[in-house]
Amino acid sequence: MSLFSSESWWGTATASVLGILMVVALVFALVRYLEWSSNTNLTEFISRTEVAAAASTPILPLHGRSACEHGKKSPSVLSVPLE
């Protein structure tokens, strides 16, 4: 059998094509997983941010007397909820 026979070239070409297809399939699966993972994490982050924003509403009354030692001064900037 010679070094450059057509049978050895076909076997090598077939193995190379199969290897390339496997690598492409793995890369595609990895990219899809990363997209899915990012969307899931983004959704979870947004939902937790909304819950945290709802929980940060001020407890002190906006009008009337408060327990603040400064008397009738206007409420500080920190007591207004951020939107």
Rank of each mutant, 00 (worst) to 15 (best):
M1V: 10
M1I: 12
S2V: 10
S2E: 15
S2W: 09
L3A: 08
F4G: 13
F4N: 11
S5F: 02
S5L: 06
S5P: 01
S6C: 07
S6M: 06
S6W: 11
E7G: 10
E7N: 10
E7H: 12
S8V: 10
S8D: 08
S8C: 07
W10P: 02
W10T: 08
W10H: 09
W10L: 11
T12K: 13
A13R: 07
A15C: 00
A15T: 00
A15Y: 00
S16H: 04
V17M: 02
V17P: 04
L18Q: 06
L18Y: 05
I20D: 06
I20H: 00
I20M: 01
I20G: 06
I20Q: 02
L21V: 08
L21G: 06
M22W: 11
V24E: 00
A25S: 03
A25G: 05
A25Y: 00
L26E: 07
V27Q: 04
F28R: 11
A29S: 05
L30T: 10
L30N: 10
V31E: 04
R32E: 09
Y33Q: 09
L34E: 03
L34Q: 08
S37Y: 05
S37E: 05
N39R: 08
N39T: 09
N39M: 05
N39A: 15
T40C: 04
N41F: 09
L42D: 08
L42I: 13
T43V: 04
T43F: 04
E44P: 00
E44Y: 04
E44L: 15
F45T: 15
F45S: 14
I46S: 06
I46T: 12
I46Q: 15
S47E: 15
S47N: 15
S47W: 10
R48C: 06
T49C: 11
T49A: 13
T49P: 03
E50H: 06
E50D: 07
E50S: 14
A52N: 07
A54C: 04
A55W: 00
A55S: 07
A55L: 03
T57S: 12
T57Q: 12
P58H: 02
P58E: 06
P58V: 09
I59K: 10
P61Q: 02
L62E: 12
H63L: 12
H63M: 13
S66H: 00
A67D: 08
C68H: 11
E69A: 10
E69T: 10
H70D: 03
H70A: 05
H70K: 14
K72A: 15
K72N: 14
K72E: 13
K73Y: 10
K73N: 15
K73M: 09
K73T: 09
S74P: 14
S74V: 14
S74L: 15
S74F: 14
P75E: 03
V77I: 14
L78A: 13
S79H: 04
S79G: 03
V80F: 14
V80A: 11
P81C: 01
L82Y: 10
L82E: 14
E83M: 08
